[in-house]
Design a protein around this nucleic acid. Structure first.
Lengths: 147, 147
DNA sequence: TATTGTTATACTCTATAACTATA
DNA sequence: TATAGTTATAGAGTATAACAATA
């Protein structure tokens, strides 16, 4: 007896699960956890962000960012330099290796996406994209990249 | 330079995030964690499941089910009775309180869904549902309920 | 006084491996 | 030998609170 909206929510969750199940496996093979991918791609879109900014954009607590940044710095994918204008803060940037990882992420995302949407006619894909864009246009939330 | 499929994947993830962000908050107010909700609704669709069956359907390791079942039993939402036909196994069932929680979950899901899809014309909602169903029809994965 | 990022701590969820009791 | 479920252990990810340094 679910309303149309309820079923739509369930379908959205099911579709997401189907999509990310493959993605997690593929990314995991390359040592890329969802949280790391999210932080890297977010930083790519907002170079020289401070940790606080990333926390806000990602919609997590500031505390959650510290261990991820530590790990990514150890991995050699990002650098953390003192903010010249605010000695409390750090500016994060992608290293060359980090940019290489961004490329890898993009390739993997493309592979996974093309793989999973392969069975869908191109026209349906376009229409689905249009409707999702329309839906997102009517919502708020911390806008953010995939993974 | 993303292909249509890549963008579609990103849109799907973004839409899911927008949807679940509200849901988690709403459910959390009622002490319902995502994992608990998933197990309860799965059990509702497959009464008298064994723990192993649930693990398979949920797509997690058997070990992951034990603490959830313990907690839900303590909460008085499910019962765990020896399987008469296999003395190694247990049969899980929802209690009356558990069925009440299922109703609550359904109400919350409906509220969240109607809330978030409110800005979308009914026709677009139907078309989006149709396309998501079509997409899911072309995929596999451990079929499963929402939250 | 407010803010950035940290340390300390705890919670949820899940995995792997070793074990037991049954099959 | 294989399976159902447990114990033990470990890890990722995140939250809150208290704190330091800076604004």
């Amino acid at each position: 007896m679910s309303s149309g909206a309820t079923e739509l929510g369930e379908l959205l969750v099911a579709a997401y699960r189907a999509f990310t199940q493959q993605g997690r496996a593929r990314f995991g093979e390359h040592g890329l956890s969802p949280a790391k991918v999210r932080l890297l791609t977010t930083l790519h879109h907002r170079q020289d962000s401070r940790m606080r900014d990333l926390a806000d954009v990602l919609g997590v607590s500031g505390r959650a960012v510290t261990p991820l940044v530590d790990a990514l710095e150890s991995d050699g994918l990002i650098t953390r330099k003192p903010d010249p204008g605010d000695r409390r803060a750090f500016r994060l940037a992608l290293t060359d290796a980090g940019l290489g990882t961004i490329d890898q992420i993009a390739r993997l995302q493309q592979q996974v996406s093309e793989d999973i949407f392969r069975g869908m006619p191109a026209e349906d894909q376009r229409e689905l994209a249009r409707l999702l864009r329309a839906f997102l246009g009517t919502t708020h939330g911390p806008g953010c990249p995939p993974a």
